[in-house]
Design a protein around this nucleic acid. Sequence first.
DNA 1: TAATGGGGGTTTTTT
DNA 2: ACCCCCATTA
Length: 686
Amino acid sequence: MFDVLEELNEAQREAVIHDGGPLRVLAGAGTGKTTTLSARVAWLLAHGTAPERILLLTFTRRAARQMLHRTAALLARTDAEAQSAARVVGGTFHAVAHRTLRRHAPALGLAEGFSVLDPADAADVIDMVREEAGHATTTGRRFPRKALLADLYSRAVNTGRPISEVVADVAPWANDLAEPIGDICRGYVARKRAGSLVDFDDLLLLWRAAAADERLGPRLAGAYDHVLVDEYQDVNGLQVDVLRALRRDDRRITVVGDDAQAVYSFRAAEPRHILDFHLAFPGAHTVVLTANYRSTQPILDTANALGSEADEGFSAVLRAAKGASGERPKLVHCADEDSQCVHACEQILAHREEGIALRDQAVLVRAARHSNLLELELAARRIPYVKYGGLRFTEAAHVKDLLAAFRVADNAADVLAWFRVLQLLDGVGPVIARRALAALGLTGVDIAHAENGETMSRWPVAAAELPAACRPAAGALADAMAGREGEGVAAHAERLRAAMAPIVQRAYPDGAARLVDLEALVVAAAKVSRLSDVAADFALEPPRSTSDLAGPPSIDEDWLTISTVHSAKGLEWDVVHILHATDGMIPSDMSLSTPSGLEEERRVFYVGLTRARRSLLVYLPLRYHHRPHGRDDAHGWAQPSRFLTEKVRATFDDVHESFDILEAAGAGAAGDGLARLSETLESLWS
DNA sequence: TAATGGGGGTTTTTT
DNA sequence: ACCCCCATTA
């Protein structure tokens, strides 16, 4: 009757049809986690649960989309209505928190147009507080910078530990500064409240507060019949609190995860939450998925060997459902980083010749910059790729400029957005911007509930602080900020764009080229109900890949994926190349100060290995140049990753650089240079 | 006071 | 290689 179940194994089927209290699915890598969760949602829908009453929390919005897409496909094969999948409430904790807060802002004492700060914004607000406290300039003593301060603050909030402990943990060199750091945190919170600014942590804190609230809480909890959570090994205490509050009277919650893949402790995630699920949700039933449908057994042997050496050993040993056959993973020894790039490219092309398209291959790295050299090599060889993770947004500064204008229009108390917009004006720097903010009455902590109109009524005073030259542009902008009776969001956005366009164009050397992007924001504004939502959506779902920013290399062409291991979580490819299996890279030397840090690095490696379906190649450069761009040959010898123990190595076939490849690599530098020169000249001939 | 250029310190992973 | 700070100049 429900033929979806036919294709599931017994354990998966048990999880899908489970009816009753809390359910925990422990699903090792490649054991059909997504399949099971999608099928469970389909099952619930087919058995009469209204889609709006299902909450599906995933790690990225992309994961939610993917899962609901599969749910729809499953439903299409039965008589059930496939479109209903689209109405399931899905997204990340933060995105769902945001939607909830928008709906209930007044009840929570929040301004309706509250602004969402992305991490860079949050750091900038902290920097304002830091500067005003004078720490930037006092006596040359090293003081934590904005990014570190933001990190310290966030950890304290997410773990509920005092700031002094967090400092001792993360930045022991600043131990004696715990007190001024605490003051900055206090100032940061005050500044946010005053400006109706909400950072990512606040989204969760406020959602928790709402869900625990006597009056609001029952309504929020009662809105869902079923709550399903993916990647549960990566939730933190705050998120568990939210779930408990949402399931105060109703015990129907399903969580799926794998403690062997917990890699987000820097975000205060703790795998103990999945291990101790039954403590938070008494009476929980557990289903364990062990059959691996993704990889060949030789690849799983490597992963199992690595897992067996973990401090506490991984609970599940992975077994390939496909049987024991398959090609053994390769450990590719390379002379240095340059030769690693050459080898990787040749392996990629060799697999492509064997019929494995570029889209079925991925290069994984621990840190985004580890692929920089490879990207040059790929570009030189005309191999198209899309990179996930580690994106820098500075190029998108103009986008944030217009978003700041949107934010001010909806929330005139948004000091940070004002500060940003004002400084774009010609002849306005931090000092004049601050004066203008003071004139607007935005400097104190007691500005909390000033009406937008009240703030804007002071605009003429603020304008008087600005240099005469920029007053026309500033005046036009202030006009555009004021909403008009009966005006739609899109129309208002368009007026703001028109006012900002000349300002943005002036502010950047390549200003004209940036104007196109601003129009995209106006289009986005047509789809939401208020201007600050555009900015919030951008903060919560920023471009995740180079293709999100620039469009895929070419729509119907084939391209390779480059990704950080973190961004590759939950994905799989036929062929996986892992670069830089050296100590200091994997494991990252940033994580070695604590034993748990090292264990997490092991899991990162494990996640990387288990992404591969058919072929796995791990690259091991033997030496690194001290000055990669210098002309000398100064270098140090690399230590193979400490995770490549005898036992792990025994599962690999070693591939050593053959002499001619070595020569090719050596000649490669000069040869490539010549090739590139020819290319450069080539443009002259047409 | 804003804009600009040189020097020194830092360098992970992401909602 | 990049960001941040600081000194110099307009």
